[in-house]
Amino acid sequence: MGARENILARIRKAQGRAGAAPTEAEMAAVREAIARHEVGPQPPFAHAPDRLAQFAKECDRTGTTLATVASERDVPAEVARYLAANGLERSLAGWGAFAGLDWAGAGIAFHNRPAAADDRTGLTGCFCAIAETGTVLLLSSPAAPKVTALLPETHVCVVRKERLLDTMEDSFALLRREVGDPPRAVFYVSGPSRTADIEQTIVIGAHGPYRVHVILI
């Protein structure tokens, strides 16, 4: 017998179930319990009356900066403003979804490709955002490479207001409805990368971005 069989048999014996592996009935019961997708208690602020204010408050706490623009057309100008304000070079690697915007008009070199190690800024969209924790959620796909949010020192993320949800549970429900199975990577980003591993002192910019900037449309 292999390790799998031994482990399963040991568990069953210890918990007083006969046989060497779970029965069909037991498996069905587990699947049924899973299919209920029971949601546990949630803190009061998870359903704040002003969702946007809750999102802004949490972004502030995690170190994400926030800007609001009227339409997608205004994104390049806001990116240009942000890069200039932070003294960053006017060049970025971005998701293809944004390639059609007028980047040249804003004086920015837009590279339509996954970010490489030496790109300074990465521009991504997101699947949705979560107000409870000030989080943006990215799903990996050919059009949405995860590295663009991870390798550059600055991550700019475009969020549509109608995609702002209350909780993580809401994001799972939306995922099931619109996508089905989770893709390879479901990536929850709440502020820039940080560490407190030396003397419990918080330092921003451990391995991922130093800056996360959300542009809300």
């Binding site: 949490e58 995690t62 989770p182 980003v189 709440s190």
Partner: peptide
Amino acid sequence: SITNYLTLTTGV
């Protein structure tokens, strides 16, 4: 309240 990164990795 949350860590900066949470990542669910499923399959290849």
